[in-house]
């Protein structure tokens, strides 16, 4: 098992480096530079100074090496658009906020999704099943940018149960709205996945053996069936983490939360290369970690996979 984990971790490193390299060159191959914006016309001298300050005057391969060397240590330099703030400062401030929401929403969607899926599979074609399948279809079809303002309108403005927006230093009542909005899509997907795989497994032969041993039906399902049924769900968690990063952009905008989401788009639009590369690298690292963790979890759940 340890060998499997180590092998998986080692193969994650070249992937991170490859993604960082790709991002660097995609950004640098773009024509023009962040300093020629049409709103402010800078003199040639100022431009040259700026270029020197950010190391643009060096040859591209040198810039690349500097970026990789510092980037792998978590240093990306000063942001272009937020003057005087280093990229790592910005990330250090904003990441915990986004990470809290993202982590909570993944946990919530996993708990609710798997429970719903399991109930549906065990009671196939019951009222609960139909209700959940309908709810899942609906949940997949309502984009978060529609759901969030409606939720705010009803839960916060009309009923006054929750604060309408803001962060409140992460107090629980500020968290409910954003986490729910972010989790809904994943709840429906996870419920659908676990229902489908559990339905298939419930018909398989080793469960007949388990029942024949005289195990009560609950332990047959929870110990034997659910473990196997979790495989596609765990595999889905990697991409789900990526989706959450995108989802936070909308959620943070609607709920006015000081997370990474608002830097995310503004860095791309303002061509803030240092901030953009910082966030991209962070994103690549997080994604790779999530994918690796989900691979390891699949290996833990299914001995056949780690033998390969």
């Amino acid at each position: 098992m340890l060998r499997f984990v180590i092998r998986r971790l080692l193969s994650a490193i070249p992937m991170i480096i490859a993604v960082m390299t790709a991002c660097f060159f995609i950004i640098r191959m773009a024509p023009g530079s962040p300093f020629d914006r049409d709103s402010v016309e800078l003199s040639a001298e100022v431009k040259a100074n700026l270029r020197a300050q950010y190391g643009f005057d060096k040859p591209l391969y040198e810039q690349y090496l500097i970026f990789m060397k510092n980037g792998l240590q978590g240093e990306f330099g000063e942001s272009y658009s937020y003057r005087g703030q280093s990229v790592s400062e910005i990330i250090r401030e904003a990441l915990p906020v986004s990470a809290t929401i993202g982590f909570l929403s993944l946990t919530v969607s996993l708990l609710i999704g798997v429970t719903l899926g399991a109930i549906c599979a065990v009671r196939q074609n019951s009222i609960i099943d139909y209700f959940t399948v309908g709810f899942a279809a609906l949940g997949r079809s309502i984009p978060p940018m529609v759901l969030a303002p409606i939720l705010v309108e009803f839960l916060a403005v009309r009923l006054g149960w929750l604060p309408a927006a803001g962060w409140g230093n992460g107090a629980w009542n500020y968290l409910i709205g954003p986490v729910l909005c972010l989790a809904l899509y994943d709840i429906t997907t996870i419920a659908r996945l676990s229902r489908g795989s559990l339905l298939e497994i419930l018909r398989s032969k080793h469960l007949i053996t388990a029942r024949a041993k005289g195990l009560p039906e609950t332990s047959v399902i929870i110990i034997h069936a659910l473990r196997e049924a979790m495989l596609p769900v765990v595999t889905y968690l990697g991409p789900a983490a990526a989706g959450i990063l995108v989802g936070t952009v909308v959620i943070e905008q609607v709920f006015n939360i000081p997370g990474l989401g608002r830097y995310w788009v503004s860095a791309a639009v303002n061509r803030d290369y240092t901030l953009l590369l910082g966030i991209l690298t962070l994103n690549a690292v997080l994604l790779t970690i999530m994918n690796t963790l989900s691979d390891i979890a699949v290996g833990l759940l299914d001995p056949r996979i780690r033998m390969r």
Binding site: C23, I26, I27, W264, V265, A268, L280, L287, T288
Partner: peptide
Amino acid sequence: YSIPSYFVIIMIQVVF
């Protein structure tokens, strides 16, 4: 899969 697709699409749109 591990390239953040939205960043790239936004970048391409903004630049070109």
